[in-house]
């Protein structure tokens, strides 16, 4: 027995297990911490500093937060982002799960339909937005023409969709569902492949109906996937920016009123006003909201799993 093995034996079983685990994480974690975590922590520290990217950094305490809480546009952006998230998350989840269940059946042309559902996600945002603005044009779009035929209301009484402050958020929610449900469908499809078909067979033998099979087999078996989809959907909804800019921004590239979102505020603060401290303060709020949701969800998942 040489000294090396002795040394290894010297390690407790626990320490050895830890080491093995860390060795699994290391390749990702080293790269991740160096190129994402370090700059990210630096950015969050900036929230108590004042920095324009060039001149010396100054400590300003909670000034950035005080300013943020007094800033009407911040509250507007937070409110819009929350509204958007509240609409997008459940509906996208339902649509994606429905699509996945449907396209997990043995169907003719299944691959074709799966690809088609994924399509709006990969198509250029400009193209998707152009089609959308055509379909939902208040005066000339097919959607309002159909509504006009059904309700017989004049066009001016029909929703103005993206051009109307009251309809802006619902419009962008529908747009987002349409564009991204194929993406979440793919995740659900991957998750569904892990459901043991024997469970269904034995349940069928026991006389369980389709609804019960869904409730007692599919849903619990899909729990980890659902947790993932839920978290990613929430995070992506909080970080929404591109979709709003593409649909609502004119040539000056600004958002206002009901179309303002949090990341837009961050973008403005960082790159238009060169106020990195203020941008970081908003980012920190975003981070904390998601962190709290994560902790709640994570605890829930653990309970659910036991």
């Amino acid at each position: 027995m040489n000294s090396a093995t002795q040394a290894r034996k010297g390690l407790s079983r626990k320490a050895k297990e830890n080491l093995i685990a860390y060795s699994f994480i290391a390749p990702n974690f080293i790269g991740f911490s160096l190129f994402t975590l370090v700059p990210l922590i630096f950015a969050l520290v900036l929230s108590v500093l004042s920095w324009d990217g060039s001149n010396p950094i100054e400590f300003v305490g909670f000034d950035n937060f005080v300013r943020m809480f007094k800033d009407k546009t911040f509250w507007q952006a937070l409110q819009n982002t929350l509204l958007y998230t509240a609409g997008v998350v459940p509906m996208t989840m339902a649509a994606a799960l429905g699509l996945a269940l449907l396209l997990n059946q043995k169907l003719r042309g299944r691959n074709f339909f799966r690809t088609v559902a994924f399509f709006p996600y990969v198509a250029s945002l400009v193209a998707v937005a152009a089609v959308w603005s055509f379909l939902f044009s208040p005066t000339r779009g097919p959607v309002n023409q159909v509504l006009h035929m059904i309700t017989n209301l004049p066009v001016s009484k029909l929703p103005g969709w993206a051009t109307d402050k009251n309809w802006a958020i619902p419009t962008v929610i529908f747009f987002s569902i349409w564009k991204t449900m194929g993406y979440y469908m793919v995740i659900y499809l991957a998750g569904l492949q892990n459901v043991n078909p024997e469970l269904y067979e034995s349940a069928s033998l026991d006389g369980a109906g389709a609804i019960n099979r869904f409730r007692y087999i599919t849903i619990p078996q899909l729990a980890p996937t659902t947790f993932f989809v839920l978290m990613i959907l929430i995070i992506n909804s909080f970080k929404v920016y591109d979709i709003f800019i593409t649909i609502f921004a004119g040539a000056d590239n600004v958002l206002s009123g009901t179309t303002r979102v949090l990341v837009y505020q961050i973008y403005n603060a960082a790159f238009r006003s060169l106020n990195y401290g203020y941008a970081s303060a908003i980012a920190l709020v975003l981070f904390l909201i998601v962190l709290i949701i994560t902790i709640i969800q994570f605890k829930g998942e653990k309970k659910f799993g036991e």
């Binding site: 546009t73 051009t163 402050k165 004119g250 000056d252 600004v254 958002l255 206002s256 009123g257 009901t258 303002r260 403005n268 238009r272 006003s273 060169l274």
Partner: peptide, 18 residues
């Protein structure tokens, strides 16, 4: 830069009847 953001945004809100 800051003045421009504020003016652009309010302009947008006025022009969209928000």
């Amino acid at each position: 830069a800051d003045i421009e953001i504020a003016l652009n945004e309010e302009h947008d809100a006025i022009m969209t009847y928000s």
